[in-house]
């Protein structure tokens, strides 16, 4: 039977699906019986989901133009 401290130690592997079957079963059993750890698991999982789902901001045109200019300077010719 896992303790809450053991659960935290396995949380990454469980979330990343790299835990072996035995550990997976033990973590699953623990979060089924311990509401606080289930909340920690669920909200950490959602933390990863919101970051993975966030598209990066557009790069401003002026910055893109500056990058092309720097590349042109580097190679000594205009870049379209």
């Amino acid at each position: 039977m896992l303790t809450c401290k053991d659960f935290l130690g396995w949380l990454n592997d469980y979330l990343d699906e790299t835990a072996d079957e035995e550990v997976k079963a033990q973590v699953k059993e623990h979060i089924t019986n311990c509401v606080n750890c289930w909340v920690v698991y669920d909200t950490t999982k959602k933390t990863l989901q919101v970051y993975k789902g966030m598209e990066p901001k557009e790069v401003p045109d002026a910055l893109r133009a500056k990058l092309l200019e720097a590349l042109a300077k580097k190679c000594g010719k205009a870049v379209s």
Binding site: V59, L71, A72, S80
Partner: peptide
Amino acid sequence: KVEAFAELMKRHDRKILR
């Protein structure tokens, strides 16, 4: 072909800036 590198920059600049 420098333009090919410019295309790589355009393709990845948003994620690299982030």
